[in-house]
Design a protein around this nucleic acid. Structure first.
Lengths: 231, 231
DNA sequence: CGATGCGTTGATAACTTTCAAATTTAGTGG
DNA sequence: CCACTAAATTTGAAAGTTATCAACGCATCG
């Protein structure tokens, strides 16, 4: 399964003015969201631009403001594995040690809030609630990862079904889904080839489980069937 | 791939006296390890005994004292996926929300230190260094998970090679590895069948990459070859 | 010694990938 | 707005890998 994706944009990210965020509804003196807003800079990335690269020093935490982001690894033989897709609101970069264990790219034009990890950790030293939030966030990411694991042992149909259900949950415009990623991205996320992804979509459509009006627009027609496939 | 593993021991865990732990070499007033020692109870589990079950309230954090533990999920059709193997010193149960997202069993006779999560979180409120350790631990688990993801998109040989290298790293008795788990466990960890695992071992042995004196005793004869397979 | 559990081996079937080509969609310039 | 080129997606046929089904070997244990 070779996927020699040499996507590398030469476009430089453009700093933008911070966007106002809706006020957070917790009683916290300062929540993580607020802290990130205060301390964060917002960067704009065009489609396919690199946000950070594997093995770079991992100095920042990131939050998608708008658009979408993919993290990924490229194996020595060129195969690419997508680590995760991040949508508006999602925070990524939590699992970094000293060096980033993967790369990140804007999947669509995107604005990303960037905060120095050191600044957040310093804050966490003083404010246990921030520390707690960081922990919860990481632990949640871990659970998401765990669901991915379960995904990857399944058949092609099951993987695609799980993927669609996950996306439906994350972009709440049911039953329609507007996918921000290409077939290649989906394939590399699910650990299969682009052809198998395509065939699986076709099969699900033939079974009237989904509709595919355009390649990135999916309509879930039979959720029970998808849930059955989901195991 | 059906693996209807209905392992369920009726043996009750036996509380045991706490074991002395080597002193921790940090300057911290109280490290997480020390805190767990102070607050933790040690339980003994016979081979295959259940430590906790999926969907139970997740009230505890666990640390393997001796022996080995597996966490796993069982899908509706009986397939089992192993989440992770834990060896002496390893801490597990970090990713739990309110309910355990998986079950845990002793893979061999094992002693496990058990600490109330609430007690650790209360401690973390007061001691930022503990909070930090919890975060680092979770983030490390996340990185391990990430490596697993990369594993699961690979071929059978690559998966087994990666698995062996990982185990070699974790049980430092190189180049010999004494596996604490059965072929079925390995299969469910790597997302393949027991037969394929067996055949892959045989193939690696035929290639003089490893030796298999007994089914649970592996000798790494050609690490470069394994590393090459590891990608 | 016969039962039982675990691991290995063999033959066949099922599924996914690979390679190739057709088709659709998107982007660009006139 | 249309035509044209490049990119993305879909489809088809063949090959490769892994799963499934079945049988066998080998230990342990009553």
């Amino acid at each position: 399964m070779l996927t020699p994706t040499a996507i590398r944009s030469s476009v430089m990210p453009v700093p933008a003015v911070p966007l106002p965020m809706p006020p957070h509804d917790t009683a916290q003196a300062e929540s993580l969201a607020e802290a990130m807003q205060l301390r964060g800079a917002i960067m704009s990335y065009p489609r396919n631009a690199e946000i950070f690269a594997e093995d770079e020093p991992a100095d920042y935490l990131y939050q998608v403001v708008c658009g979408s982001v993919r993290t990924y690894n490229v194996l020595s033989d060129g195969r690419r594995q997508i680590g995760e897709f991040y949508l508006p609101g999602d925070i990524f970069g939590l699992q970094c040690g000293d060096k980033c264990p993967f790369s990140a790219e804007a999947m669509t034009d995107a604005k990303v809030r960037i905060v120095k990890r050191s600044s957040l950790h310093a804050l966490a030293e003083r404010d246990p609630s921030i520390a707690r939030e960081l922990f919860v966030l990481t632990s949640r990411e871990l659970m998401r990862m765990h669901k991915r694991l379960l995904l990857l042992i399944k058949s092609a149909q099951e993987r695609v079904a799980s993927f669609l259900l996950e996306m439906a949950e994350r972009v709440p415009s049911n039953p329609d889904i507007e996918l921000p990623m290409s077939r290649q991205d989906i394939a590399d996320y699910l650990g299969m080839t682009i052809e198998t992804v395509s065939r699986t979509f076709t099969a699900l459509e033939a079974a009237a489980t989904i509709e595919v009006p355009s390649s990135r627009h999916i309509v879930l027609r039979n959720r029970p069937a998808l849930n059955r496939l989901n195991g």
